[in-house]
Protein backbone atom coordinates (compact mmCIF):
# COMPACT_ATOMS: atom_id res chain seq x y z
CA UNK A 1 0.00 0.00 0.00
CA UNK A 2 2.78 2.44 0.87
CA UNK A 3 4.18 1.88 -2.64
CA UNK A 4 0.84 3.03 -4.06
CA UNK A 5 0.79 6.12 -1.86
CA UNK A 6 4.33 6.96 -2.94
CA UNK A 7 2.89 7.54 -6.42
CA UNK A 8 1.31 10.76 -5.15
CA UNK A 9 3.32 13.98 -5.58
CA UNK A 10 5.55 14.92 -2.67
CA UNK A 11 3.59 18.05 -1.74
CA UNK A 12 0.39 16.01 -1.68
CA UNK A 13 2.00 13.38 0.54
CA UNK A 14 3.34 16.03 2.89
CA UNK A 15 -0.19 17.26 3.38
CA UNK A 16 -2.42 14.17 3.27
CA UNK A 17 -0.31 11.02 3.64
CA UNK A 18 -0.64 10.74 7.43
CA UNK A 19 -4.40 10.97 7.54
CA UNK A 20 -4.91 8.83 4.45
CA UNK A 21 -2.63 6.16 5.96
CA UNK A 22 -4.70 6.33 9.15
CA UNK A 23 -7.88 5.92 7.11
CA UNK A 24 -6.47 2.92 5.25
CA UNK A 25 -5.40 1.37 8.56
CA UNK A 26 -9.01 1.64 9.75
CA UNK A 27 -10.48 0.45 6.48
CA UNK A 28 -8.19 -1.93 4.62
CA UNK A 29 -8.49 -1.12 0.91
CA UNK A 30 -10.21 -3.43 -1.54
CA UNK A 31 -8.80 -3.93 -5.02
CA UNK A 32 -11.31 -1.31 -6.18
CA UNK A 33 -9.95 1.11 -3.59
CA UNK A 34 -6.42 0.46 -4.86
CA UNK A 35 -7.53 1.38 -8.36
CA UNK A 36 -9.21 4.46 -6.94
CA UNK A 37 -5.98 5.44 -5.21
CA UNK A 38 -4.07 4.95 -8.45
CA UNK A 39 -6.55 7.27 -10.20
CA UNK A 40 -6.21 9.70 -7.30
CA UNK A 41 -2.42 9.74 -7.67
CA UNK A 42 -2.72 10.42 -11.40
CA UNK A 43 -5.21 13.19 -10.71
CA UNK A 44 -2.91 14.70 -8.07
CA UNK A 45 -0.15 14.97 -10.68
CA UNK A 46 -2.42 16.28 -13.42
CA UNK A 47 -4.40 18.71 -11.25
CA UNK A 48 -2.10 19.57 -8.36
CA UNK A 49 -4.40 21.09 -5.75
CA UNK A 50 -1.84 21.05 -2.98
CA UNK A 51 1.04 22.38 -5.05
CA UNK A 52 -1.19 25.20 -6.20
CA UNK A 53 -2.21 26.02 -2.65
CA UNK A 54 1.19 25.91 -1.05
CA UNK A 55 3.71 26.70 -3.74
CA UNK A 56 2.12 28.24 -6.81
CA UNK A 57 0.16 30.92 -5.07
CA UNK A 58 2.93 31.79 -2.65
CA UNK A 59 5.73 31.88 -5.16
CA UNK A 60 7.20 35.11 -6.38
CA UNK A 61 6.48 35.92 -10.03
CA UNK A 62 9.30 34.90 -12.37
CA UNK A 63 9.28 38.40 -13.82
CA UNK A 64 7.60 41.43 -12.28
CA UNK A 65 4.48 42.65 -14.13
CA UNK A 66 6.38 45.61 -15.56
CA UNK A 67 9.00 43.22 -16.99
CA UNK A 68 6.30 40.98 -18.45
CA UNK A 69 4.61 44.00 -20.02
CA UNK A 70 7.95 45.20 -21.41
CA UNK A 71 8.68 41.80 -22.97
CA UNK A 72 5.20 41.60 -24.50
CA UNK A 73 5.49 45.17 -25.83
CA UNK A 74 8.96 44.58 -27.27
CA UNK A 75 7.92 41.29 -28.88
CA UNK A 76 4.77 42.89 -30.26
CA UNK A 77 6.74 45.84 -31.62
CA UNK A 78 9.15 43.47 -33.36
CA UNK A 79 6.25 41.64 -35.01
CA UNK A 80 4.85 44.98 -36.21
CA UNK A 81 8.26 46.13 -37.46
CA UNK A 82 8.80 42.81 -39.22
CA UNK A 83 5.43 43.02 -40.94
CA UNK A 84 6.00 46.60 -42.05
CA UNK A 85 9.46 45.81 -43.43
CA UNK A 86 8.13 42.72 -45.20
CA UNK A 87 5.33 44.78 -46.68
CA UNK A 88 7.83 47.26 -48.11
CA UNK A 89 10.02 44.56 -49.67
CA UNK A 90 9.74 43.55 -53.31
CA UNK A 91 9.71 39.80 -53.81
CA UNK A 92 10.76 37.87 -56.86
CA UNK A 93 7.98 35.27 -57.18
CA UNK A 94 10.50 32.83 -58.65
CA UNK A 95 13.16 33.22 -55.99
CA UNK A 96 11.93 35.18 -53.07
CA UNK A 97 9.85 34.16 -50.16
CA UNK A 98 9.28 36.15 -47.05
CA UNK A 99 12.08 34.67 -45.00
CA UNK A 100 14.47 36.23 -47.52
CA UNK A 101 13.34 39.68 -46.46
CA UNK A 102 15.14 41.84 -43.91
CA UNK A 103 11.92 41.79 -41.91
CA UNK A 104 12.05 38.07 -41.24
CA UNK A 105 14.76 38.19 -38.53
CA UNK A 106 12.62 40.79 -36.74
CA UNK A 107 9.69 38.35 -36.82
CA UNK A 108 11.85 35.52 -35.47
CA UNK A 109 13.21 37.63 -32.62
CA UNK A 110 9.65 38.87 -31.98
CA UNK A 111 8.49 35.24 -31.70
CA UNK A 112 11.22 34.50 -29.14
CA UNK A 113 10.50 37.63 -27.09
CA UNK A 114 6.74 37.05 -27.04
CA UNK A 115 7.38 33.42 -26.01
CA UNK A 116 9.47 34.74 -23.12
CA UNK A 117 6.64 37.13 -22.23
CA UNK A 118 4.26 34.15 -22.25
CA UNK A 119 6.59 32.23 -19.95
CA UNK A 120 6.72 35.23 -17.61
CA UNK A 121 2.90 35.33 -17.61
CA UNK A 122 2.61 31.60 -16.98
CA UNK A 123 5.07 31.58 -14.10
CA UNK A 124 3.86 34.81 -12.55
CA UNK A 125 1.21 35.23 -9.88
CA UNK A 126 -1.90 33.22 -9.19
CA UNK A 127 -2.79 32.83 -12.87
CA UNK A 128 -0.03 30.26 -13.32
CA UNK A 129 -1.44 26.89 -14.34
CA UNK A 130 0.14 23.80 -15.79
CA UNK A 131 -1.64 24.08 -19.15
CA UNK A 132 -0.74 27.75 -19.47
CA UNK A 133 2.89 26.90 -18.79
CA UNK A 134 2.86 24.12 -21.35
CA UNK A 135 1.45 26.50 -23.98
CA UNK A 136 4.13 29.10 -23.15
CA UNK A 137 6.93 26.53 -23.38
CA UNK A 138 5.49 25.24 -26.67
CA UNK A 139 5.60 28.80 -28.01
CA UNK A 140 9.29 29.01 -27.19
CA UNK A 141 10.03 25.58 -28.73
CA UNK A 142 8.22 26.49 -31.94
CA UNK A 143 9.98 29.86 -32.04
CA UNK A 144 13.20 27.86 -31.99
CA UNK A 145 12.04 25.82 -35.00
CA UNK A 146 11.01 29.05 -36.72
CA UNK A 147 14.61 30.21 -36.55
CA UNK A 148 15.97 27.06 -38.21
CA UNK A 149 15.09 27.68 -41.84
CA UNK A 150 13.20 25.42 -44.25
CA UNK A 151 11.38 23.15 -43.70
CA UNK A 152 11.40 23.49 -39.92
CA UNK A 153 10.39 27.14 -40.03
CA UNK A 154 7.02 26.18 -41.49
CA UNK A 155 6.33 23.79 -38.61
CA UNK A 156 7.68 26.44 -36.24
CA UNK A 157 5.44 29.17 -37.64
CA UNK A 158 2.19 27.22 -37.47
CA UNK A 159 3.13 25.55 -34.18
CA UNK A 160 3.91 28.95 -32.70
CA UNK A 161 0.59 30.48 -33.81
CA UNK A 162 -1.41 27.47 -32.56
CA UNK A 163 0.42 27.70 -29.23
CA UNK A 164 -0.42 31.41 -29.05
CA UNK A 165 -4.10 30.62 -29.68
CA UNK A 166 -4.05 28.06 -26.86
CA UNK A 167 -2.10 30.42 -24.60
CA UNK A 168 -4.43 33.37 -25.30
CA UNK A 169 -7.56 31.29 -24.64
CA UNK A 170 -6.12 29.88 -21.40
CA UNK A 171 -4.89 33.28 -20.27
CA UNK A 172 -8.33 34.78 -20.92
CA UNK A 173 -9.82 32.14 -18.64
CA UNK A 174 -7.58 33.15 -15.76
CA UNK A 175 -8.75 35.81 -13.32
CA UNK A 176 -7.81 39.36 -14.30
CA UNK A 177 -6.22 38.31 -17.62
CA UNK A 178 -9.16 38.75 -19.95
CA UNK A 179 -7.06 40.69 -22.48
CA UNK A 180 -5.46 37.35 -23.42
CA UNK A 181 -8.48 36.70 -25.63
CA UNK A 182 -7.14 39.35 -28.06
CA UNK A 183 -4.37 36.95 -28.99
CA UNK A 184 -6.81 34.38 -30.40
CA UNK A 185 -8.20 36.32 -33.41
CA UNK A 186 -4.85 38.06 -33.90
CA UNK A 187 -3.04 34.71 -34.13
CA UNK A 188 -5.66 33.44 -36.57
CA UNK A 189 -5.06 36.51 -38.76
CA UNK A 190 -1.30 36.11 -38.60
CA UNK A 191 -1.46 32.62 -40.12
CA UNK A 192 -2.22 34.32 -43.44
CA UNK A 193 1.16 36.04 -43.09
CA UNK A 194 2.93 32.82 -43.99
CA UNK A 195 0.78 31.84 -46.93
CA UNK A 196 0.53 35.10 -48.83
CA UNK A 197 3.40 37.44 -49.53
CA UNK A 198 0.85 40.22 -49.82
CA UNK A 199 -0.34 39.65 -46.26
CA UNK A 200 2.77 40.85 -44.45
CA UNK A 201 0.72 43.46 -42.57
CA UNK A 202 -1.18 40.62 -40.89
CA UNK A 203 1.70 40.75 -38.41
CA UNK A 204 0.57 44.22 -37.26
CA UNK A 205 -2.63 43.31 -35.37
CA UNK A 206 -0.76 40.37 -33.87
CA UNK A 207 1.92 42.70 -32.54
CA UNK A 208 -0.73 45.12 -31.26
CA UNK A 209 -2.51 42.29 -29.43
CA UNK A 210 0.71 41.41 -27.60
CA UNK A 211 1.24 45.04 -26.63
CA UNK A 212 -2.34 45.23 -25.30
CA UNK A 213 -1.97 41.99 -23.34
CA UNK A 214 1.31 43.23 -21.89
CA UNK A 215 -0.26 46.56 -20.91
CA UNK A 216 -3.12 44.71 -19.20
CA UNK A 217 -0.53 42.90 -17.05
CA UNK A 218 0.32 46.22 -15.44
CA UNK A 219 -3.21 46.54 -14.11
CA UNK A 220 -3.20 43.11 -12.56
CA UNK A 221 -3.28 43.35 -8.79
CA UNK A 222 -0.67 41.32 -6.93
CA UNK A 223 -1.82 37.76 -6.35
CA UNK A 224 -3.57 37.22 -3.06
CA UNK A 225 -1.82 34.97 -0.57
CA UNK A 226 -3.74 31.74 -0.48
CA UNK A 227 -4.55 30.17 2.84
CA UNK A 228 -2.61 26.99 2.51
CA UNK A 229 -3.69 23.69 3.86
Amino acid sequence: MSALLRLYPRAWRDRYLDELSALLAERPPSSRDRLDLLGGALDAWLHPQVVAATQDDDRQPLVRPVGTAALAALGGALWIAGGVVQNGTRFDPGLGYKEASAGFPLIVVGAFITALAAIAFAWGGSDGRATLRRAAVAMFAFALLLSMGWPLLLIGFFGYTISVIAFGALLAGAPRSRAGILLVPAALVVTSFNTETTMALAAVPFGLAWIAVGAAALWRPAPATASAT
Binding site: Y16, L24, L35, D36, D43, Q49, T229
Partner: peptide, 25 residues
Protein backbone atom coordinates in the same frame (compact mmCIF):
# COMPACT_ATOMS: atom_id res chain seq x y z
CA UNK B 1 -13.04 5.42 -2.73
CA UNK B 2 -10.13 6.82 -0.70
CA UNK B 3 -8.50 8.39 -3.78
CA UNK B 4 -11.76 10.09 -4.74
CA UNK B 5 -12.38 11.19 -1.16
CA UNK B 6 -9.01 12.91 -0.85
CA UNK B 7 -9.18 14.34 -4.38
CA UNK B 8 -12.48 15.96 -3.43
CA UNK B 9 -11.27 17.05 0.03
CA UNK B 10 -8.24 18.77 -1.52
CA UNK B 11 -10.46 20.64 -3.98
CA UNK B 12 -12.99 21.69 -1.35
CA UNK B 13 -10.23 22.83 0.98
CA UNK B 14 -8.49 24.81 -1.73
CA UNK B 15 -11.73 26.58 -2.59
CA UNK B 16 -12.41 27.44 1.04
CA UNK B 17 -15.57 25.33 1.25
CA UNK B 18 -14.16 23.20 4.06
CA UNK B 19 -11.30 23.64 6.48
CA UNK B 20 -9.02 21.25 8.28
CA UNK B 21 -9.02 21.19 12.07
CA UNK B 22 -5.99 20.26 14.18
CA UNK B 23 -5.21 16.54 13.84
CA UNK B 24 -6.39 14.11 16.46
CA UNK B 25 -3.73 11.44 16.58
Amino acid sequence: GPGTLYGALARLERRGLIEALPPED
